[in-house]
């Protein structure tokens, strides 16, 4: 089997993969990074979003072999080494932007990308950006609110709690 090498969460990672091995399979089964989830097989739910070379992609819709040499960041690589959560992660907790937690890794990865591209997104821009991330628990209210809060916007007027 061919070998693939990449940098994952700042550390070199390599392993043998089949042609058909998806990046998400390499991350979960090969590297034990089970924070990246698989919620569908049609590239829509976004539970598997990771960053490849700084950009969000669906890890279930890219082969591991295609990430050869790439820099990959997964949900496990977002908090600081000492465990301090990022402002986005922090805001998701503060504003109850997650319930079952299954879609959460993808949501956080998308939100991190959004704020990199657009540091102060409007409500509409956030909702639009999350088109590829499905959550069944939260009704999105607190996810959108959390992302606005993480971007430094005042969310006190958005319905309490």
């Amino acid at each position: 089997m061919p070998k693939v090498s990449m940098t994952v969460n700042g550390k070199p990672a390599s392993g043998e993969v089949e042609g058909r091995t998806l990046l998400v399979e390499f991350l979960r089964d090969g590297l034990g990074l089970t924070g990246t989830h698989v919620g569908c097989d049609t590239s829509q739910c976004g539970a598997c979003v990771v960053h490849v070379d700084g950009k969000p992609v669906k890890a279930c819709t890219i082969f591991a072999a295609e990430a050869e040499g790439a820099t990959v960041t997964t949900i496990e690589g977002i908090a600081a080494e000492d465990g301090t959560m990022s402002p986005v992660q922090e805001a998701f907790q503060t504003h109850h932007g997650l319930q079952c937690g299954f879609c959460t890794p993808g949501m956080v990865m998308s939100a991190e990308s959004l704020l990199k591209e657009n540091p102060t997104p409007s409500e509409a821009e956030i909702r639009d950006y999350l088109e590829g991330n499905i959550c069944r628990c939260t009704g999105y209210h607190n996810i959108v609110k959390a992302i606005m809060a993480a971007s430094g916007q005042d969310v006190s007027k958005i319905a309490a709690e």
């Binding site: 924070g35 990246t36 997964t74 949900i75 992660q89």
Partner: peptide
């Protein structure tokens, strides 16, 4: 939330 947000669920 901490474990869910950091990929440790």
């Amino acid at each position: 939330d901490v474990r869910f947000l950091t990929g440790n669920g």
